[in-house]
């Protein structure tokens, strides 16, 4: 009876608020407040490890970040990584999904095994790829490639062993390989979901019209799968832009030199090694703006694709 009286006493609005408020409070404390606080700090000279109050310096941190040629170098490195890694993941992931989108024995087991890499921790992945990419005799990849690398034609171009993580010319390729190995399954999973949702009747109708395989792929599969592919690309682009763990572990904090040092790696250095908190906040905001801008491009394109449907 008490409960009934109690629920009768609450208006719809109050009930709604009772359900929403805990989440709202949590969001404000965990997300909104840090976001606003870091925005505030980005306009201040502040070092978290020094017991001095923040000093307002206007946009100096932003100017410092945007006029630092080294930081532009880290942005270029990151952009290169994002374009190459996400493209490779897209092609491999979508290709695998096309192969898996048919019936064959043990399909479930094969799909599960292919999905395993993305379920591992990036740090663990970085550590075991360290061993796989080792350029001495313990390196599995060099061992597997040795029959090819020792061919006279190849030998003149790549003198074995390939120094995957220490040669400045190919260190970034090593990071791309590891990230692609880890995240192509994600692309595959989303693509597979899209491919499974394409109505069979469309293909049957196309078969009746004697449409070619390419025609069916270009005019049935691709248009219907593309919204999901764009979402997968959006997630991977945002994630790749924040690349940190694998670089930290695999190439020892972005080495050799700064060849694989991404913006996030440099951000970590500024924030947690140098404790230049104000500058780190400014850099984080610049990174956020770039990611939001990139996401908007994808979302606009996604809307266009949906509109065409």
């Amino acid at each position: 009876m008490q409960t009934n009286r109690f629920s009768r006493g609450m208006s719809d609005y109050q009930l709604k608020m009772a359900f929403i408020m805990p989440t709202m409070i949590l969001l404000i404390l965990m997300n909104i407040f840090p976001l606003l606080w870091s925005l505030y700090l980005s306009f201040h000279d502040y070092e978290a490890s020094m017991q001095k109050p923040p000093v307002f310096i206007g946009a100096k941190n932003y100017v410092d970040v945007l006029t630092d040629p080294d930081i532009w170098g880290y942005f270029r490195t990151t952009a290169y990584f994002v374009v190459v890694a996400v493209s490779a993941q897209f092609l491999i992931g979508f290709g695998l999904a096309l192969l898996l989108n048919r019936s064959f024995p043990s399909k479930g087991l094969v799909t599960t095994l292919l999905l395993l890499p993305m379920m591992l921790s990036p740090v663990v992945v970085g550590i075991f790829w360290r061993f796989i990419l080792a350029s001495d005799n313990s390196g599995l990849l060099n061992y597997l490639l040795s029959p090819i690398l020792n061919l006279p034609v190849i030998n003149t171009i790549f003198a074995p062993p390939i120094e995957w993580t220490t040669d400045p010319k190919i260190a970034m390729l090593a990071v791309v390989i590891v990230d692609t190995w880890m995240w192509s399954p994600f692309m595959m999973l989303i693509s597979l979901a899209g491919l499974s949702a394409v109505p069979k009747s469309l293909y049957e109708a196309a078969d009746v019209d004697r449409a070619s395989t390419w025609f069916k792929f270009r005019w049935i599969t691709l248009p219907l799968v593309s919204p999901l592919l764009l979402i997968a690309l959006l997630f991977r682009t945002m994630d790749a832009f924040k690349m940190f763990d694998i670089v930290y572990v695999l190439t020892r904090e972005g080495g050799p030199g700064r060849v694989t040092e991404t913006v996030s790696m440099n951000l970590y250095r500024i924030a947690f090694r140098n404790y230049d908190t104000g500058k780190a906040c400014a850099m984080a905001y610049i990174l956020l703006i770039i990611i939001v801008a990139l996401s908007n491009i994808y979302v606009k394109y996604l809307n266009r694709v949906k509109g065409e449907e």
Partner: peptide, 12 residues
Amino acid sequence: QTNWSEAITGIK
């Protein structure tokens, strides 16, 4: 760290 690493790997 960065510059000496660049020197020993021939970047600089």
